[in-house]
Structure formats: structure tokens, C-alpha cells
Design a protein around this nucleic acid. Structure first.
Length: 413
RNA sequence: GUGGGUAUAGCUCAGGUGGUAGAGCACCAGGUUGUGGCCUUGGUGGUCGUGGGUUCAAGUCCCACUACUCACCCCA
């Protein structure tokens, strides 16, 4: 048997309804905030991600689907959406065209070991807003998040942080490194390595021994510049005003290099080890870094698989309203054409062309169809149809020209 | 890449110390020669993940591999 690749999932019909539900709600919300959908390619040049996400990040170092195409160029299945949207923004001069806020619902790919809540193909519900450095944009991003969580009735917490900018972060990194250097032997193996590559990441280490050390480390909040500090304060003020609950967690660092100033995570305790449902923040330097003109930006992405695992969906999925069953010989053509007529009226209709009446009714019952139209020689002769309501167990002969109106009104007992 | 757990029918799972496989649900059909759901009767369906080994005999013991899964790393 050939089966799907590890970490790649089929989304079967009994699940797709739920996906559509989530996507429709998010679409509604994004568009109410005046974001426009953008669709960008799944495959990009590899360097787009090494330059944006950061060459030393785990995503780039060990998680990307990168390979050579037939012209010997390195291409990558996108591990995230932001870099792709920024590329499109620059390439098509979208800001000059009056387009600056975008959303996407799209698959992403990372070559990781699959586990609960993490797959090699997964889906992001993401938004990106360009050209505005004011904290109102950060607040707007958070408001959209809150709206999604509310509409889907999810139990989560919001953690935010300020990770500074290019002006102030280096000095903090230096202080932090100096502090940790003094306790190097107490850190885990990974963190000792991080001292060189990315000291900020040590703050995020989950090992108890490291946590003990970082608990008393200098806080980034004490080292940020006035601009970053003011921005962060303003965002907090707005969140409070909007009644969005949050906690400041100065240990949050993101796994992507491009973030500046405001970052956040939305976390659930009900998802196992992978609790982050949604995350994002500001990235004021990325557009310029990728060759565009300096453009502040802010965005976030929610993991659709994780959202879907969290919210409770309670609509039953009826995929068929009526089933048409011909009985006897020379009744099939008429029944088949009638099926088409019902479909044109907007009903979901299935035509059963073989098997016994009994088995056809069993199928109709299993599919939870409300209506069954039974058409035999007698009905043809009389120009009628035996219309049965499976929910009420009521059946009547109805003249062919009255079928649609009777179905619309319902059968009397 | 590293560690743990699991692998028997379409699904969920039973199968002490070795003696060539079972249940429930699902599916198909009959009980009603044109009537579903409940009931009842019967039926289809398994090279017991794969490949080796021990043995007269392996679902069961040993080894290897693969897949799935959870966790680490990291992330949505």
C-alpha cells in the first residue's frame, strides 16, 4: 500500500466542514479589518528564507524542504508566509498600488519530526500589515486575534513582550551574554552553544536548570530604547482599553530573526507540548532587508490544525437533502432527469441507479437525507412521485409538478 | 537528529506459561417479490506491520527493519 508521507495528512470529508467553518470565520474577521486576500507561490528561491527568517535559525538550518530544481537552482517549499508576502509586496510595488494589508490561508512546510500539533505540512491563517509604525496596528493585530478566539470560543492566554530593535537589542544581548558567561557551566549543552549563536534563545529554554539561571537574568525591558519602550507601553495601554487580557512575558523570543519591538504568543494548555496557537509581532526592518524601501510592518499567523483541535464544533454535516430511487424497469431515465431538476432548484440530491429499494433506503438513512423520492411504474403512469419524509416517516404521492413546492413546505402527518 | 510507547478484520480492541485466530461496531443479504432507523437470522472480511531466527509447532519467544504515535530540539 502506498501511503501518504510522514507528517502529511489527508483532510477527509468528515473534517473539511470544520475547516471551512474556521476559514470562513477568519476570512470574515480579516476582511472586516480591511485586509485583502493574497495568494503567493508555495515554492520560492531558497535564499528568500535564509535572508528573512535568519540563516542561523533552526527553521533554515534543519527544517526546510530545500532541493535543486532542474536548472540547478535551490528552491524551498515555504516554511512560513511572511517572507513570501514581503517578496510579493516589493516585486509588485503593492504599496504604491494602494494595497498594504493582506491575509492568507495557506499550507506551509517544515521538515520536522511530526508529533501532536505539529506536521510537515500545516496551514497558516496569517495577516501582514505594511507601512504603518504606529502601535494602533499592533493593537489591531491583537484585536483580530481576540476576535478569532472569541468567535471560536477558545480557552487560551495571551503573552506579549518587547524584544527591542536594532538600536537597543545589541546592547541587551551583550549584557545578557556577560551575565550568562559567568554561569556557563550551569547551563545545558544546547544553551552553552547558544551563548555564541543566539543568547536570547536561552531565555526560552525549558530545562529547569536553565530556567533557574535565567530567572534572575537582566530583563530586556530594562534595556530597550525610549522608542521601543514607548511603543510597548502604548500597545499595552490599547490592549487594556480593548479589554484584551494579557501578561507580559519577558522570556518570549521568537524563532525567527526578523521580529522587532512587539511580539506575542497565544497559548493553550490543552494541546500537549505544542501549545502555541497563534503568534506574531512587528518586523520593521524586513522589507528593507529584502531589498524594498524601508517599510514598517506587523503581522501574525495562527496554526489552523491547532485552532481546529481546540474549538468545539457542533453542527451536523448533511451533504444530501434528497435521494431519488427508481423502482422497476423504464423508470430510471425519468428519475435521473428529475434528479437534475431538483439540483437546479438548489437541493443536494443523490440518484441511486442500482440495488434493491431496501438497500437504497438504507443508504438514504445512513446519509441522513430528509427526503426520498420513490418512482415506480405506477407513479410514472399517474405522473406522480412517492415522496417520503425519512425524519417523520410520512409518505404521500405527489404530482410531479408539485414536488418542489411540497418539499419546500414539508409533508403533513 | 535523539529517546519512550504501539503495531491482530474497515474501526475499537480481546487473545496467562508457544498448539495454524475472536468480540463489539461497521459492511452485505434474508426475515417484507415496492419501503429506512429498532429487532432478528445469516454472510463477506485477517499471509496476526515486514523479514529473518529458535522450535515438531510462533499472534505468542529472540533479532533486525518499517510504519504510526508521544516527547526532546524547535515551532503555528
Amino acid at each position: 500500500m502506498i501511503q501518504s508521507l510522514p507528517g502529511f495528512k489527508d483532510i477527509l470529508p468528515n473534517e473539511t466542514r470544520k475547516w471551512q467553518f474556521v476559514e470562513n470565520i477568519c476570512r470574515d474577521i480579516f476582511e472586516s479589518f480591511a485586509y485583502q486576500e493574497i495568494r503567493v507561490p508555495i515554492l520560492e528561491k531558497a535564499q528568500l528564507f535564509s535572508r528573512s527568517v535568519g540563516n542561523d535559525t533552526d527553521i533554515v538550518q534543519k527544517e526546510m524542504y530545500t532541493f535543486k530544481d532542474k536548472s540547478d537552482q535551490f528552491v524551498t517549499l515555504r516554511p512560513e508566509g511572511t517572507a513570501c508576502v514581503v517578496r510579493a509586496l516589493i516585486q509588485h510595488h503593492l504599496i504604491h498600488e494602494g494595497m498594504h494589508k493582506f491575509y492568507y490561508i495557506a499550507p506551509m512546510f517544515r521538515y520536522e519530526r511530526p508529533q501532536r500539533g505539529r506536521f510537515r505540512e500545516f496551514h497558516h491563517l496569517g495577516v501582514e500589515a505594511f507601512g504603518e509604525s504606529s502601535p494602533y496596528v499592533d493593537a489591531e493585530i491583537m484585536e483580530m486575534n481576540a476576535e478569532i478566539l472569541k468567535r471560536l470560543n477558545m480557552d487560551v492566554r495571551v503573552e506579549i513582550n518587547n524584544i527591542g530593535c536594532r538600536k537597543c537589542r545589541p546592547s541587551y544581548t551583550k549584557v545578557l551574554r556577560e551575565y550568562l558567561m559567568g554561569k556557563k557551566e550551569l547551563l545545558c549543552e544546547d544553551c552553552q552553544r547558544r551563548l555564541d549563536t543566539n543568547p536570547l534563545r536561552i531565555l526560552d529554554c525549558k530545562k529547569e536548570s536553565c530556567k533557574k539561571i535565567t530567572a534572575f537574568a537582566p530583563s530586556i525591558l530594562d534595556y530597550s530604547c525610549d522608542e521601543c519602550r514607548n511603543h510597548f507601553n502604548e500597545v499595552q495601554r490599547l490592549l487594556t482599553k480593548m479589554n484584551i487580557d494579557f501578561v507580559v512575558n519577558e522570556k518570549i523570543v521568537r524563532g525567527l530573526d526578523y521580529y522587532t519591538k512587539f511580539v506575542f504568543e497565544v497559548i493553550s494548555d490543552k494541546l500537549g507540548a505544542q501549545g502555541t496557537v497563534s503568534a506574531g509581532g512587528r518586523y520593521n526592518d524586513l522589507v528593507e532587508d529584502l531589498g524594498g524601501s524601508p517599510t514598517p510592518a506587523c503581522g501574525f499567523a495562527a496554526g489552523e490544525e491547532r485552532v481546529i483541535e481546540l474549538f468545539d464544533y457542533k453542527e451536523d454535516d448533511k451533504f444530501v437533502d434528497a435521494v431519488v430511487i427508481p423502482v422497476g424497469k423504464d423508470t430510471s431515465d425519468f428519475s435521473f432527469l428529475l434528479t437534475g431538476d431538483l439540483r437546479k432548484e438548489g437541493f443536494k440530491v443523490e440518484f441511486i441507479s442500482s440495488g434493491s429499494l431496501k438497500s437504497a433506503l438504507r443508504k438514504a438513512n445512513k446519509w441522513k437525507a430528509k427526503w426520498v423520492l420513490i418512482i415506480g411504474d405506477e407513479e410514472i403512469k399517474e405522473n406522480t412521485v412517492s415522496l417520503r419524509d425519512l425524519e417523520k416517516s410520512v409518505q404521500k404521492k405527489v404530482r410531479v409538478e408539485d414536488i418542489i413546492s411540497v418539499i419546500r413546505q414539508g409533508l403533513d402527518e
